[in-house]
Structures are given as structure tokens and as C-alpha cells.
Design a binder for these strands. Structure first.
Length: 742
RNA sequence: GCAGAUGUGGCGGAACUGGCAGACGCACAGGACUUAAAAUCCUGCGGGACCUAAAUCCCGUGCCGGUUCGAUUCCGGCCAUCUGCACCA
């Protein structure tokens, strides 16, 4: 209505675990249930009157769509950003199948209750870590809500520090390799009294012959492997560990010999999988050292000397002590100096680390895009020729998870058999599929050119529409999906396939609608509100107006069956205004000001997504028209145009009853005249020491003297200041008049 | 524990840049219409001080303090709730 060409698309991201598990449970092929669900969703969305461009509808499970998902994977592979690595998967010891994280509940299989353990498996990985810094840096150029930016930044988790080598010895002899650790606090090096390696660390295999208590160490390692991620990550868990006897490390700053331990509080997936422990200045190390009776050496004290209870971890308020050349330095300076020392003496290097890990891109599942890779005994892994895309997911009968954590596709012997794209010899297809995030990592690009069978989207279409001006979605997607799609987009930008660095210019989020009991809607709680029922009972317009009215757009709000009736009543009143309708080509004198003010308010409210106050404005106007028992045609038309985005069906019907030829959405959005929104007379509250005692009416451009005179003449004011001394009088033009008295 | 958000009547929520706290709606109460009910329309509706009413006054935006002529709004410190992440060295 404001003259922009707006692309408002819709589509269905339909691969993934929920669809697959539903299919398994009900013995219906996921293809069928997916199709049924999409049809149902489409009907529901249409019943609500959304103005989606249905000609661009997409479905990520359509081979014509996932052809391009596979194509992007091949490009990633060609640029070295997709690689195979051995990663642990959740493995159910009962069902003998691999499980997704959400299928593991309290360390046991959701279905059979058997313990879940970690099993090593070769998987496809995507190198999102290569983009970590750019994913942080480029946030500054885009308009995301601050809380969304903060979540992205925290998730990527950049930290600065150093990697430092600790020499190892066995029976006093120096070993041929060092133990590399990562630390963000090199200033605490003098306080490192022991070291810890993760259970998976290769130190144990490498120096097995030097370890005098190898059986004990190996037993600990095996026990740790049996624990699920959940158990290992559980907070307040007692720390456990075993000293690796026979091997010692040398603290490079103190030259002292310190013990080396193995414990699962150190993670193989972060940093180098080994740490130097500084129990005096790290909570976890402190807990471990206290339990194991290890030395705790304080090397930082607080500036004010007040709080020296250990562990003392405040970087901003610390000074090094007992730390050789660092002693006396501020913690921040000490960190810098320690890193310089490390680099000068070739002990290690400055290093930035990220919490973000590479993306595990394989799923041992049926309902996903087949990974278009082939393994040949001679040539290794190679992508299938792009001319063979899409690699269609075979239509199979038995899509239950495979044995020993294999994909269900591993049973499809005919499908697996193929020729090597390099040498032509017999070769095997990859049987893992892509995760549910794959299709949604680029879908926005497909909307720009949804039916292109030559490319994922033409350059012209991409240039015309890119980037997405405004992306609204739930907060639950602000880390994974949002980050993955930014990563893919940046990759596509790097290979020249898209014109912008970032996919989305602006990202907002909506609040969740809770059940009537104030809890998240869920089937098990029985508090689900079905939109079909609401539309049947109250109509789509009432439904929409209520959703907008119930609270601020970005905040959660509980559903109320009582409150929605109020919105229905409001729309009835709008309809019945026909009974007080009179002719008129212009706004009437008595309503003119209200009309201009309302256009201004609703226009800015929509821009700021303050839909709830827009609806309040409509209700206020309606009350006003009924109070005056009259509305003219010009006023009614503008009112219907303003209300149209909220209640499209009824307003269009009324518009045509008024004899209009065009539909409302073909008419331009109403405009207002700023000068006509200003009142001639304004009310000025008069305060006495900040408390309102009276309200006076003055002309809109009244001078301070004039206002002062009116205030002085006011009876209530006179009464209030009677017997008191006026100290000061403050007038804020057009706002307030405050008298300070003693 | 870390990060982010939120706290205002019986309820959902308004309140611009620090300027009349409670817009608008729900619920509730009283009245009109009706044989009656529903629907609709009108009126009232933060708490307290007076038996009632008007008028008036006092208190009041999670708690304690500060800045200011003036604070729901700004600052400091707490408390509670929600969401996400969680042994990240």
C-alpha cells in the first residue's frame, strides 16, 4: 500500500527427525505424512488470510529443491570446507542404533531406556570455524536485535590467550614431545601446580610404556567413554580423575616438575584437550585440587587486598604476586607480558580460540538429503558429477534406524552400488544423510527464483531481491539455524554465487503464545489451542486482531478465551457502524483531528511492531464514533484502510459495500497532515513539589508569561500554595508547570 | 555458574526524550431493554482515611538507597521469575 514491491514468501522445511519418528511410530512413510501435513498447514495459513506469495512456495524435501542443497555441499567439499572426521555419536546399547541428542533423556534412550554411550564414527564435517571471526565481525553491519547479536557472539565464544608447550619427563629423562595446552590466563602460569589431560588425549597411547599405573589410567579412560555427554556435562558432579604416574611435566616459568592427571572435566573438543591447572585462580581446578590434595599456590591478589579468598578469579581487580618477572603487574598487563615471554622463548604462541566447533553434518537417518559423495578404494571420497544431481532419496519400505549406528540406507545394497566418478571402478555411495538444518540454510535464496531449473537462483533475481530486508522468527533459532545460514551465505558470497556478505539485513523475533495456564503449549500438558477451532468459532479476523492485541509482539503472552471475545465484540461494532454512517467526502470538523492523529499513530506503530497499541487506537476511535452517533463515509473508508492489515476479510467486505471498486490493498495507505494532529489548546498539569494539584487549559503556542498568569489565577493552585513560600517555578513548554514550595 | 530478558490493578497490558501512572481490552458490580435469558447499550471499577455521598487528603509501578523541581523511566545495590547455554581452561 506504500508502493513497494514486497516479497512475502512461505515454504516448508520438512526433513528431519520429528517427521521420521512420527512415520516410524505410525508405520506411514514420511513422504506421505509430510505431504498431508503440508496440505493441512497450507489450509490453515490460507484460512487466516496471510498474503503469502504462494507461487513461490518451496518444500525442502522436493528433489528439485534439494538438488541445490546437494550442489552447495559439493561446492563446500571442493573448497575443502567439508571433510570426514571421526566423531562420537550417541549410541543406544539396547536398540543398537545411533540417536540424536534430543532422543537421549537423562543419559538413557528415550524409547527403550537402555544406557546411551558414545561411539566413534566417521562423519562429514563442515568447517564453520573457518568463518567464526567473520560471523562475529559482520554483525556490526546488520540490524539484528541486540539480544540476538549477543547470543550469536556468545555462542561463537571467542577467547584470546596462548598455546604453551610443557616439557614432559619420565624417570628424570626428557621425552621427545611436549604437552601443548591452551590458556586465557598465561599470567597465572607461576601458579600452575599440575596438569590435566582429557580421557581421549593421545598422550596415554603415545607413552603407554612410561606410565607405571597404566591399568588404572586405562580403566578410568574406559569408564569415561561409557558416560554420555549428559553425564559428563552435569554440573555439581563430583570431579574424578587419576594421576598418570611415571610421567611428569615441567612448568616452563618455574622450571618445577609437576604431576599430570587424567580427568573428564577437561574436554577433548575444546582447545588442545589438555590444560595447565591453576587451582588458586580457577573454580574447577580449585575443586579438583582440593579433592585430590594437590598443591594450591596463590599468584594473584586483589588490588584492594580485601577479597583474597581462593579461588580468586577477578581479572579486572588482580595483581600478580609470587610470579617472578610478572610480580607487581596488573593482571591485564601480566597477561600481555606473559604472552610476550612465551613467544620470545619459543614456548608457544598467542592464540585465539572459539567455543564454536565444526558442524557435524552426517546423520545416520533416512529422512534427509542424501550426501552426494562416493567412496572408491583407489580414489577415496569424491562428489558425484553435478549433472547427476539431484541424487534422489530412494523410496524404501524399511526406514527404521540401522544396526550398529548405520544409516537405514546402508541396507539398500542396489542403491549403494555405483561407479567411481574418477576412475570408473565399482564404488559405494555415502549412506548418511544431511541434518535437518541443511535445507533451511539457504531457502531464502530459493524464494527469489523458486522455479529455476538451471541454477539455485538467477543472478538477476538475486541482485533484485538480496539481501532479505527483514527476517522475523523465533528466538529458538537465533543460534543454530541463524548461524548456519549466515555461514552458508558467506561461503556462497566467497565463491561469487550471491551478491551480499550477509543474508539478512534485519532480524527480529516474536514472543511465544502460551497456553491458557501460562505454560508453553504442548500436547502432553493438554493446553494446545488449535487455530482451526478459533477460526471456526470466532473467525479469522477476530483471531488476528486478538493475536496483535494480546501484548507486545516480542514478548510471550498466555492465551485467553475470555479476552478474545472482546476483540470479536470490537469487530462487531466496526461492522455495525454502518448504522450510523452518513455521506461525506471529507472528514467532519469534529473528527478531523482524531483521524489525522490515528493515521499517524497506526503508521508508526506498525513500523515499530507495536500492534497492540494500534488495536487500542482502533477501539478508542470506535468508541468515539458511537459516542457522537455518527461516522461519515470518508472517515469510515480511512478507518477500514488502517484496520485492513489486522482484519482483512471484514474490512474488504465493508469497503465493497461502501461501493468502492478497488480492494483496499490496491489503494494507497492513508496519509496525515502533521499540522492537523496538533491541538489548538493543550492541557498543562500544574504540580506542587512534583504532585499534580490542577490542570489548566492554554493555547498551544502560549508564552510562559501567559501560562504563568493562568496558573496564578487557578483556584486550586491558590488553595494549594496558601500559607507556603514559593521557592521556584518551572515551566516546560507544552508539558508541565511545577511550583516548588516550602 | 554465564549470557539475555522481564517485574505496573483481580487479569492481558498503556505511559513519547525524565513531565497528569493505570490508555485500550477482559473479568466483576449496578442499571436500561426483555415475560426471562443471551446479545446489545449506559454507568462504575488500584488501595486506604469518613456510617453514606460529594469534596479532600494519604499511599501506590518487585525491594533498599541515590540523582532531580519532578523517577515506571536515569544511577548503585539486592530479590524473584522466564529463556538460552552450560566443566570452554
Amino acid at each position: 500500500m506504500e508502493g513497494y514491491n514486497v516479497l512475502y514468501p512461505i515454504g516448508f522445511d520438512a526433513f528431519g527427525l520429528p517427521a521420521e519418528n512420527y512415520a516410524i511410530k505410525n508405520h506411514v512413510h514420511p513422504k506421505i505424512t509430510t505431504e498431508n501435513n503440508i496440505n493441512h498447514f497450507r489450509e490453515q495459513l490460507q484460512a487466516l488470510g496471510f498474503s503469502f506469495d504462494w507461487s513461490r512456495e518451496i518444500n525442502t524435501t522436493d528433489p528439485e529443491y534439494y538438488k541445490w542443497t546437494q550442489w552447495i555441499f559439493i561446492q563446500l567439499y571442493k573448497k575443502g570446507l567439508a571433510y570426514k572426521a571421526t566423531m562420537p555419536i550417541n549410541f543406544c546399547t539396547g536398540c543398537k542404533v545411533g540417536l540424536a541428542n534430543e532422543e537421549v533423556v537423562n543419559g538413557v534412550c528415550e524409547r527403550c531406556g537402555s544406557p546411551v554411550v558414545q561411539k566413534e564414527k566417521s562423519q562429514w564435517m563442515l568447517k564453520i570455524t573457518e568463518y567464526a571471526q567473520r560471523l562475529i565481525d559482520d554483525l556490526k553491519d546488520i540490524d539484528f536485535l541486540d539480544k540476538i547479536k549477543a547470543q550469536q557472539t556468545n555462542w561463537i565464544g571467542r577467547s584470546e590467550g596462548a598455546e604453551v608447550n610443557f616439557k614432559l619427563t619420565a624417570a628424570g629423562e626428557e621425552l621427545d614431545s611436549n604437552l601443548l595446552i591452551y590458556t586465557t590466563r598465561p599470567d597465572t602460569m607461576f601458579g600452575a601446580t599440575y596438569m590435566v589431560v582429557a580421557p581421549e588425549h593421545n598422550l596415554i597411547e603415545k607413552y603407554a610404556d612410561k606410565i607405571t599405573n597404566l591399568d588404572e589410567v586405562k580403566a578410568y579412560k574406559e569408564k569415561a567413554a561409557l558416560k554420555s555427554d549428559f553425564e559428563r556435562a552435569e554440573l555439581n558432579k563430583e570431579k574424578t580423575g587419576v594421576e598418570i604416574k611415571g610421567i611428569k611435566a615441567i612448568n616452563p616459568f618455574t622450571e618445577e616438575e609437576i604431576p599430570v592427571w587424567i580427568s573428564d572435566y577437561v574436554l577433548i573438543t575444546y582447545g588442545t584437550g589438555a590444560i595447565m591447572a591453576v587451582p588458586a585462580h580457577d573454580d574447577r581446578d580449585f575443586e579438583f585440587a582440593t579433592k585430590m590434595g594437590l598443591e594450591i599456590k596463590q599468584v594473584i591478589k586483589s588490588k584492594d587486598g580485601a577479597n583474597d579468598e581462593l579461588p580468586f578469579t577477578d581479572v579486572d581487580n588482580g595483581i600478580s604476586i609470587n610470579s617472578g618477572f610478572l610480580t607487581g603487574l596488573d593482571s591485564k598487563d601480566a597477561i600481555e607480558k606473559a604472552i610476550s615471554y612465551v613467544e620470545e622463548n619459543k614456548l608457544g604462541t598467542r592464540k585465539v580460540n572459539y567455543k564454536l566447533r565444526d558442524w557435524v553434518f552426517s546423520r545416520q537417518r533416512y529422512w534427509g538429503e542424501p550426501i552426494p559423495m562416493v567412496y572408491c578404494e583407489d580414489c577415496g571420497w569424491n562428489p558425484i558429477p553435478e549433472s547427476e544431481l539431484p541424487l534422489v532419496l530412494p523410496d524404501i519400505e524399511n526406514y527404521e534406524p540401522g544396526e550398529n549406528g548405520e544409516s537405514p540406507l546402508a541396507k539398500q545394497t542396489e542403491w549403494i552400488k555405483t561407479k567411481c566418478p574418477c576412475c570408473g571402478k565399482d564404488a559405494k555411495r555415502e549412506t548418511d544423510t544431511m541434518p535437518q538444518w541443511a535445507g533451511s540454510s539457504w531457502y531464502f535464496l530459493r524464494y527469489m527464483d523458486a522455479h529455476n531449473d538451471k541454477e539455485f537462483a538467477s543472478k538477476e533475481a538475486l541482485d533484485y531481491w538480496s539481501p532479505i530486508d527483514w527476517y522475523n522468527g523465533g528466538m529458538e533459532h537465533t543460534t543454530l539455524h541463524l548461524l548456519y545460514s549466515r555461514f552458508w551465505h558467506k561461503f556462497l558470497y566467497d565463491i561469487g554465487a550471491v551478491p551480499t556478505k550477509e543474508p539478512y539485513q534485519k532480524r527480529t523475533s516474536h514472543g511465544m503464545i502460551l497456553g491458557t495456564n501460562g505454560e508453553k503449549m504442548s500436547k502432553s500438558k493438554g493446553n494446545v489451542i488449535n487455530p482451526d477451532d478459533i477460526v471456526n468459532e470466532f473467525g479469522a479476523d477476530t483471531f488476528r486482531v486478538y493475536e496483535m492485541f494480546m501484548g507486545p509482539f516480542d514478548q510471550t503472552a498466555p492465551w485467553s478465551m475470555e479476552s478474545i471475545r472482546g476483540c470479536g465484540k470490537f469487530l462487531d461494532r466496526v461492522w455495525n457502524m454502518q448504522e450510523i454512517l452518513v455521506d461525506g467526502d471529507e472528514y467532519s470538523k469534529e473528527h478531523e483531528k482524531m483521524m489525522h492523529k490515528a493515521i499517524k499513530k497506526v503508521t508508526s506503530d506498525i513500523e515499530e511492531m507495536k500492534f497492540n497499541t494500534s488495536v487500542a487506537e482502533f477501539m478508542k476511535m470506535t468508541n468515539e464514533f458511537y459516542k457522537d452517533k455518527v461516522i461519515n463515509k470518508a472517515e469510515y473508508k480511512t478507518f477500514l484502510q488502517l484496520l485492513n492489515p489486522f482484519a482483512p476479510h471484514m474490512t474488504e467486505e465493508l469497503f465493497s459495500i461502501l461501493g468502492e471498486e478497488k480492494t483496499i490493498n490496491e489503494t494507497p495507505w492513508p496519509v496525515y497532515d502533521e499540522t492537523k494532529t496538533i491541538d489548538d489548546e493543550i492541557e498543562i498539569p500544574v504540580q506542587l513539589n512534583g504532585k499534580v494539584k490542577a490542570v489548566v487549559l492554554v493555547a498551544k503556542d502560549a508564552s510562559e508569561e501567559e501560562v504563568k498568569a493562568v496558573v496564578a489565577a487557578n483556584e486550586s493552585v491558590q488553595k494549594a500554595i496558601d500559607g507556603k513560600t514559593v521557592v521556584k517555578e518551572i515551566y516546560v513548554k507544552g508539558r508541565i508547570y511545577n511550583i516548588v514550595v516550602k
